[in-house]
Amino acid sequence: MTDVLQLFVAGVSIGAIYAMAAIGFVLLWQTSNTINFAQGEFVVLPAFLMVLFWTVFRLPFAAALLATLVVSTLLLGLLVKAVLVERLLKMGVLPLVIATIGLSMLIRYSLQQFWTPLALPFPALFSRAPIRVGEVIFTREELMNVLFAALVIGALQLAIRRTKLGWAMQAVAQNRNLAAVLGINVSRLVGLTFMLNAALTAVAAILVAPVYLVKYDIGIGIGLKAFYAAIIGGFNQIRGALLGGLLVGLVETYSAAYISNQFRDAFALIMLIGVLLLKPEGLWGIKEEWM
C-alpha cells in the first residue's frame, strides 16, 4: 500500500511536467491549428539554455532562470511564429506539421552537433532527502515539482478565465473568422500564444531537467507524452490536457513498477488508442463540430 502511494506521488510529479507541455500544445492547436511536433524540443532547448546560463556562464540561479525564460520566449515564441507559422498558417494543417517536424530535427541535431551528444548533469533544484509521512516516503523534489506545476497551471487557468486575452483565445479557438470580425487581432494572439507556450515549456524544462538529465534527444519522449496527454484528456480543453498529463505520468510509473519496464512506453499508448477508439474527443474534451 505504501508503494502504491509513493508511486502515486512520483507519477503525479512527472505527470505534472507532461501536463505543462500538453497544455502548451493544446493552446497552440486552439489558437493557430498548429500541431507542434517540436514540442519536445521546445522543452529540451530551454534546458540547454539553463545549463548555459547557470553552469557555464555561472549566473546566479534567479538571473539564469530569467535569462532562460526570456531567450526561449523570444526564440521559440516570437521567432518561430514570425518565420514559420505566420506564413504557413493559411495553408492548412499539413504544411505546419511537416515544418514543425523539420524544426524538431533541426533543434535536436544542432544541439547534438554543435553542443554535445552526451548527457549534461543538471544540479538538483530541491533536495532529494526523503520526507516521511507516516510510512510513505517522498522526496522534496517530487513535492516541489507538483507544487510548481500546480501554481503555473493554476495561474494560467485563472488568466484564461479572467482576462481579456483569455477571452480572445477562447473566441479564436471556437471560430477564427468570427473572432476576426469581433476585432480580435488573430495574428498577434497567435504570437502571444506561442510565447506563452514557450514560457510553459521552459518551466517544464527546468523542472524535468534534474530528473531526466539534459540530453539532445530526450525531447522525443517528452514531446510524445505531451501528445498522448493532450489526446487522452481532450484536445480542446486545458483541463483535459492537465488530466491527460497526470494520467500518462501515473500509467507510466505504475506500469513500469508493476508490469514491465521494457514496455513502459507502450501502456500510455494503449490507453491512447483505447481513448481514440471509444471517445475520440478525449476523456474530458468537447465534441467538435465540423464548422
Partner: peptide, 16 residues
C-alpha cells in the same frame, strides 16, 4: 549529424 541538420533546414525552407 550535419546531414540531418541540412536536411531539416531544407525541409523547412521547402515548406516555406
Amino acid at each position: 549529424g550535419f546531414y540531418l541538420i541540412i536536411f531539416s533546414l531544407a525541409v523547412i525552407l521547402m515548406m516555406l
